[in-house]
Simulated scan of single mutants.
Amino acid sequence: MINWKVRFRNRNWVIAFISQLLIVAQLVLAALNSLHITDFQLTDAIQSNIIALANAVFVLLSMLGLVQDPTTKGYGDSDRALKYEDPN
């Protein structure tokens, strides 16, 4: 179980989450366009710029250690983190 209330109070986690949402949004738009569900199409120039920007933000956040929590094993929160009321 993930403690979302604490995560959304953590500014660094929110920044990483938003960068990942941008990547997912781009992939969804590309999929909808390839299935001819929508006519919205990103040009190659705009698409490569968006990918480059999102990748740069994501790599920077990963290098700073803000994307993964090195104190827990796997992707879940530790028992201690689940009891937080505020980010520790």
Rank of each mutant, 00 (worst) to 15 (best):
Y75K: 05
Q26G: 14
A56Y: 06
L32N: 05
Y75G: 06
Q47E: 14
K73L: 12
L64V: 12
K73P: 12
L82T: 01
V14P: 00
I15T: 06
Q47T: 11
I46E: 13
Y75Q: 05
Y84M: 02
P70E: 09
F17R: 09
V28Y: 04
L22I: 08
W13M: 04
N3I: 04
D69P: 02
S19D: 04
A54C: 04
F58I: 04
R9G: 09
D86C: 05
A45Q: 09
L22Y: 04
I23G: 00
Y84W: 05
Y75V: 06
Q47L: 14
K83P: 00
N3L: 02
A54R: 02
I18N: 02
I51F: 03
S34P: 08
A81L: 01
R7F: 00
A54K: 03
R7V: 00
I18Y: 06
A30S: 12
Q68N: 15
F8A: 00
T38Q: 03
L66C: 11
V57E: 08
V24W: 12
R7S: 00
V67K: 13
N12I: 02
L35K: 10
G76Y: 08
V24Q: 10
G74E: 04
A16L: 00
I46W: 11
R9W: 09
S62K: 13
I2E: 11
K5A: 11
Q68E: 15
T43I: 10
N12E: 08
V6S: 02
Q47W: 14
M1P: 09
S48G: 01
L66R: 15
I15S: 10
D86S: 05
K83L: 08
L82Y: 02
N49F: 10
L82W: 00
R9T: 03
M63L: 15
L64K: 14
V57H: 05
Y84N: 01
D77F: 08
D69V: 03
Q26M: 15
D69R: 14
R11F: 08
D77A: 10
E85I: 14
R9P: 03
M63D: 07
R9H: 13
P70N: 08
R9E: 12
N88D: 04
N10L: 06
D69W: 12
R11G: 01
R7Q: 04
Q68F: 15
Q47K: 12
L53R: 02
N88V: 05
L42A: 15
W4H: 07
Q47I: 10
L53A: 12
T38R: 01
I46V: 13
Q26R: 14
T71N: 09
Q20G: 10
L60K: 03
N33H: 13
D39R: 06
L35G: 07
N33D: 06
I23A: 06
R80C: 02
F40Q: 15
I37F: 10
P70Q: 09
N10H: 07
D79F: 01
A56L: 07
L60I: 03
G76R: 07
R80Y: 12
Q41D: 13
Q20A: 12
N49L: 09
I51W: 03
S78H: 03
Y84I: 01
I51V: 06
N55M: 07
D77N: 09
D86A: 07
I18V: 10
K73D: 09
L66D: 14
R80M: 02
T38I: 10
A56V: 01
L21K: 06
I2L: 07
S34C: 07
